[in-house]
Design a protein around this nucleic acid. Sequence first.
DNA 1: TTTGCGACGTTACACTATAACATCGCTTCC
DNA 2: GGAAGCGATGTTATAGTGTAACGTCGCAAA
Lengths: 166, 166
Amino acid sequence: MHSFQPLSEHDPFACSAHDHRRCQHDALAAAEDACRREGVRLTPIRKRVLELVWASHQPVGAYALLEQLAVDGHRPAPPTVYRALEFLLEQGLVHRIDSLNAFVGCTHPGERHRSLFLICRACGRAQELAAAPIEQVITTEAQRHGFALEKLTLEAVGLCHSCSGS
Amino acid sequence: MHSFQPLSEHDPFACSAHDHRRCQHDALAAAEDACRREGVRLTPIRKRVLELVWASHQPVGAYALLEQLAVDGHRPAPPTVYRALEFLLEQGLVHRIDSLNAFVGCTHPGERHRSLFLICRACGRAQELAAAPIEQVITTEAQRHGFALEKLTLEAVGLCHSCSGS
DNA sequence: TTTGCGACGTTACACTATAACATCGCTTCC
DNA sequence: GGAAGCGATGTTATAGTGTAACGTCGCAAA
């Protein structure tokens, strides 16, 4: 078993310039570790859903996942995949992109963090960035209004460096 | 006709402490002005939808609007209200809250701006804040990754000062 | 062996959104 | 005046997203 490479500095927009099987493999290995540490079960379905989410860096919808699962021969109903996604969300293994109704693998599982997503409207890929500095500004601003912040949705849509032609 | 009071400093979480009819009235007056300036038509349906959106400071779903319209006797089909909302979005008179699939009146119509929304999970109200400082941080961060930012979704969920008991 | 529980299966449905085409009223232009 | 064009709305149907409720199954603890 090779040492797990934290996915932090990965650029999903560097299209063909990266070995994506490595991303997927590392993410699954990290998930196994995380679930073992937490004492929760990464069942075959949950693992398969996570694997499918990590099939690309493009956020993927629940029904697209269902179609992929159908290819395996399973043909589960919607609740099955939603339950798997709920589990993965709770364990911090995937994120939900509200503006797309879609899900994407978390690049920092295990670390407590908030994220900012850069979503390319051309290639559909999303990059997760640590939102710590922004979080600080927003928390302060919220407090100024007596607001106790719990959840944060930070999503930017635009063009990535590959798609803007530069 | 009384002078239009910019809605900027209004606190929607100050529950009963404000005359909400005033909010609604001012928003409609501002919308009339904005549409006249832009040379677009604030038709009866569009105006009514805007009025309903401004019936509270709680983001409201498209189907809830449909139900309200039905009370008037209209009973329009979904496309009618979605078209009205699309128009209001284009004119910058309402915002869509992605994390809620809901719509809320814009408190700064006419001004070019990005917004951060504070959404109380207890009372359901939302406050719109100018996101200029945060936008600056995010734009810079995006540029550092070669990402050309176009749209921004900034939504914070938590407890407002009224609901947290303070 | 029984009991409890977590995970998954299954059915049915609720909620959100849009495509496609019809109609209607208004303006423009000959 | 009549035809053409166009924006707004009506209408029908359907696509896409998400969940409630209940049943089943297997495993572990008592």
